[in-house]
Amino acid sequence: MALKEQDIKDIAHLARLGVDDSALAPLAADLSTVLSLVEQMNSVNTEGVEPMAHPGNAVLRLREDTVSEPNQREKLQQAAPATEDGYFLVPRVIE
């Protein structure tokens, strides 16, 4: 499937990824090439084949509902771009 510049704009918005207008055409070309590679999958009939999301078909384990981690808020927030009073700061969302 050949992607157009508008397709790239739409996908980039879904992924919350800023893309310059000048990058749209090369990205459309690159992604179209990758899609034609992956479309080689269509050469095989997979009707009735059980999808394999995971090797070993792991089942999620359950554990006791107990506190397992200590409170390390200050340490964990040291890597944050902006914090205040223990909160992560972002631009104002509600006026």
Binding site: L3, L14, A15, L17, G18, L27, D30, L31, V34, L35
Partner: peptide, 21 residues
């Protein structure tokens, strides 16, 4: 959008876009 555009390189962006698509 801008943090991700500035923080990721070209190949990472390509794969994010392929995956999202």
């Amino acid at each position: 959008k801008r943090s991700r555009a500035e923080g990721f390189g070209d190949e990472v962006k390509r794969r994010i876009l392929i995956g999202a698509y």
